[in-house]
Design a protein around this nucleic acid. Sequence first.
DNA 1: TTTTGTGAACTAGTTCACAGCT
DNA 2: AGCTGTGAACTAGTTCACAAAA
Lengths: 223, 223
Amino acid sequence: MTGKNKGRVGGDQVSELTAGRLSVYLRCLNALDAEGAKTVSSKALAEQFQLNAAQIRKDLAYFGEFGVRGVGYYVKELKRHLRQILGVDRSVRVAIVGAGNLGLALADYPGFRQEGFAIVALFDSEKNKIGHRSKGGVRIFDVADLRKMVKKEHIDIAVLAVPARAAQSVAAQIVAAGVRAILNFSPGALKVPPQVKLKNMDLTVSLESLSFFLARGESDASS
Amino acid sequence: MTGKNKGRVGGDQVSELTAGRLSVYLRCLNALDAEGAKTVSSKALAEQFQLNAAQIRKDLAYFGEFGVRGVGYYVKELKRHLRQILGVDRSVRVAIVGAGNLGLALADYPGFRQEGFAIVALFDSEKNKIGHRSKGGVRIFDVADLRKMVKKEHIDIAVLAVPARAAQSVAAQIVAAGVRAILNFSPGALKVPPQVKLKNMDLTVSLESLSFFLARGESDASS
DNA sequence: TTTTGTGAACTAGTTCACAGCT
DNA sequence: AGCTGTGAACTAGTTCACAAAA
């Protein structure tokens, strides 16, 4: 380790944008590794997605000096670092709350399992769903048992996929159960305490946003 | 219309962020309208979600002078304006490409229908799926008929929910069929021409982003 | 040579603060 | 009085450009 390495320690805020990009880099590195590439430069990475090379170097340099000047980044090594930074070097345990169409689909989503996420349980309040399983075998529990299960199964992240009217109260239950991160697919603005990390995946907002750009006739490829 | 109204004309770029917020405002206005509220101030709106009142005024003022000083915004009027700005004043026609678990769930998602989106068709390449319908009644067509159907059904937006390996080639088919906006649920970076508006809803990136903040937040992970 | 890591410059996005209208 | 619309100030995020390292 050559120099200062200012990252990792202390609470110097990292933006949502950066976090998302790190994840994108990791996926790219997995592909490169599978192809047998030994090293990759920030320029090569930048060309894959629509990005500036300096951006990638800054994002990475924030967490340490992972590169080698004149060479680039060693794929396996950077991959290992990124997995650690993103916290997916060990299994991350996820619960899906809401066993409707969307919740069931998310529970069986193959992409989750691949990248170190374990879908541990589904939750619903409808008695006739409880005890059954998703097609992929994830068991449905009573949402009343959330707290108990969060402790027992060490659930890290809750994915919220319940109807709009129930979202806020179920979110409160999730928080009360001790979950510190929520991926919210339900529409509307949830209120959660500041120590809980909330990420909204609002389907209607996404479609309306696309509709807006169609209506304007503008376009601009971006994430 | 009182004054200058600099918005709407010309190509003065509006950011993705603004577009998303407009959609959020609209949902809030729908709720206010349902509650019978006649007017609303930017301050009151700002308190609903975590936002600054000036932000809301700026977002809206960009498209015209919709407010009344000393009063606020007339709910019904602003709602009407926002629906027009977002292009949801007429039915927006959506196709879901990929009739797997996720695609089927999205096709029946009740939130879409509510807000002026019509889910017109599902598409898949698996012959044994073609001709069937989602639980909610959306018919599954052969992805080979995409071009024909886009013309016939005037499809505005395609939602892409196919496995990662197929995503890029299916995206190309969607573009070739003349669709100008894609909501992409498949993982990985798609390449589309600049005149096509692409919005990524990457489930893995979202979870990893949450995992990242969890990993940072915990003052000291064991071992 | 190549390519990183990084201060400086730049661009985009947000908030402040107040004039001006009702 | 109350509240919008908006220039100015500020903050966050990105890109440039170059010294330093392999």
